[in-house]
Write a protein that binds this DNA or RNA. Structure first.
Length: 534
DNA sequence: AGTCTTGCCCGTCGAATGGA
DNA sequence: TCCATTCGACGGGCAAGACT
């Protein structure tokens, strides 16, 4: 759309605001683009209008379903005019290619911190940002320091990045280029989404050497859909990483319930870096979230994870088989309502923790490694107790290679308070779903996600659900008990390929053959007739 | 008739104020 | 110091009126 033009009323119509609103903007804001008369009508350049609208937030009461608080009129205008409908991904993709050229020898995380920190400053409209863009050298570094002092999370990531980034002369020119790219991201008006996009890109770039667990976007969407958070709910992630689940839940609520946004979001981070990234990510999307760092106090002396609040919805992807001693040395066992575990078996400690932080009408979805479904010992005992208590609602086995950090297959535990026991557990084997996005990466398509989501919804509603061989099975607890509480879905759903087809009589087969021969003869005759006609 | 401006009203947000 | 309340600025909607 190089030089497309629009009138004031066009703008008002596309934005679904009144004409007077646009008129007021024009009257009240000298920065409003100037008009040009075409055939007696005043016209504006779309490019200039979009630029200006990007700086204009839609007030809460005027948000439409699906729009998060903080959405600008620029975004709405673009959507309505189908401008750049390829959206932030296309823009960010292009910028990403440029961006990684300026990566130096330092590790990806440092580079990520620098870029994300700057993008946060740019998008959150920091008062120093314009000067940072316009200045160079030590003055610019001073301004960055000043800006970071105003934003503590940025302070953390920028400090980390600075020491390794600016120790040579090339650092200066690279910084100039990076700031230029960040400014372009800001001007695109889709900074918050780009922040999220870059978080995913950087996590992928860090790969297996990456510092933290990063939940892929497809998995976030799946889990959020499975717990279906409603407006007014409290959402909690006890290990929130960069805030993906909390943001996903906020987006889900906004998309399904309009702008009614009185939900609360709480995240605990295991590192200061995670906390900073999560804080920035959520702030930029205007998600009112509390993010705390709880790494040092993860496990108390009695082995319990810290739990003193309850939430309606808990979503989490905690680190599997946590090796790091994040608890005090005096911890020898991990206690929980459903059993005691040796201190190295943290997976079920997380699951029990999730249960203890759930309200009695709550719902939780947790990502766990495959071992949690079948391992015996103390873990098997806890699993058995949870099943008997009726807190396990469903298990979904996912394909391998879903994560950048590990190739092992994972599964989703859907948990509910025991009051709601229904005597059956839904087991879904989705390990055949998904497609490879690279040699080592697999992702779930939208269809895959909705197939899983719809199955769970139908099963919950008790309406229209049927077991699908090789995919899903609703299983009574008694049957799981007989299997020593092993929850591996594949064991219950059967195989999709019929290994032992029921034997058919020779007569049936001969009849079939005869029928097919008759149809073939009829088809031949039809072809002959057509040929004769020519 | 269609397009835009103006004045007025009202809801929202944040800063200031006041009380425990 | 923390909380609630008040107040003013601001932005958007509405309706009447002006312009072409």
């Amino acid at each position: 759309m190089p030089d497309r033009q629009v009138s004031m009323s066009d703008v008002a119509r596309q934005l679904e605001v009144t004409l007077s609103a646009v008129s007021n903007w024009r009257r009240r804001h000298p920065s409003f683009p100037s008009a040009e008369k075409v055939n007696g009508q005043e016209m504006f350049l779309v490019r200039e209008i979009v630029d200006w609208l990007d700086g204009r937030k839609i007030s809460k009461k005027d948000l439409k379903p699906g729009e998060l608080p903080g959405t600008t009129y620029g975004t709405r205008f673009r959507g309505a005019m189908r401008i750049g409908h390829a959206s932030h991904v296309a823009i960010a993709d292009a910028l990403w290619d440029e961006l990684i050229q300026f990566r130096g020898a330092e590790d990806v995380a440092m580079f990520a911190d620098l870029v994300l920190g700057l993008l946060y400053l740019a998008v959150s409209n920091d008062r120093h940002w314009n000067d940072i863009v316009a200045t160079e050298g030590s003055r610019r570094l001073q301004l960055m320091e000043l800006a970071a002092l105003d934003h503590r999370p940025v302070l953390h990531v920028l400090h980390r990045a600075r020491s390794s980034f600016f120790n040579d002369t090339r650092g200066e020119t690279r910084l100039t280029e990076i700031i230029r790219l960040v400014e372009r991201m800001r001007r695109s008006g889709q900074g918050p989404d780009m922040f999220e996009f870059l978080l995913n890109q950087f996590a992928a770039a860090e790969g297996r050497r990456g510092s933290g667990v990063h939940t892929p976007a497809a998995l976030v969407r799946l889990l959020v859909e499975l717990v279906a958070p409603a407006p007014g709910t409290s959402v909690f992630d006890p290990c929130c990483g960069s805030g993906g689940f909390l943001l996903g839940a906020a987006k889900y609520i906004a998309a399904h319930a309009g702008h009614d946004f009185d939900a609360s979001f709480t995240g605990h981070a295991l590192s200061e870096r995670s906390a900073s990234l999560a804080y920035m990510n959520l702030q930029l999307h205007h998600v009112p979230a509390d993010v705390d760092i709880r790494a040092d106090a993860l496990f108390r002396n009695d082995g319990m994870l810290i739990a003193n609040e309850r939430f309606d919805v808990v979503l989490s992807n905690p680190p599997f088989d946590l090796k790091e001693p994040m608890w005090s040395a005096s911890v020898s066992e991990l206690h929980g309502r459903y059993g005691t575990l040796p201190k190295k078996r943290t997976n079920f400690a997380w699951l029990q923790y999730v249960m203890s932080s759930l309200t009695n009408s709550g719902r939780a979805a947790v990502v766990m490694p495959g071992g949690t479904l079948f391992r015996g010992g103390a873990e098997g005992q806890v699993r058995a107790n949870m099943i008997e208590e009726g807190v396990v609602e469903a298990i979904i086995a996912l394909p391998s290679q879903m994560f950048v950090s590990t190739g092992i297959p994972v599964n989703v535990w859907l948990l509910r308070p025991s009051e709601r026991r229904e005597g059956e557990i839904l087991l879904i084997d989705a390990s055949d779903l998904g497609h490879l996005t690279s040699r080592t990466q697999r992702s779930l398509s939208d269809e895959d996600q909705s197939r899983i989501g719809d199955t769970v919804k139908q099963w919950r509603a008790g309406d229209g659900y049927e077991n699908v061989r090789g995919f899903s099975a609703s299983v009574v607890v008694q049957r799981i008990r007989e299997q020593d509480y092993v929850l591996t879905p594949a064991r219950y759903v059967g195989t999709s390929v019929e290994l032992n087809p029921p034997l058919r009589s020779v007569r049936e087969l001969r009849d079939d053959l005869a029928r097919l021969e008759r149809r073939a003869a009829a088809a031949d005759a039809a072809v002959e007739r057509q040929l004769d006609r020519i």
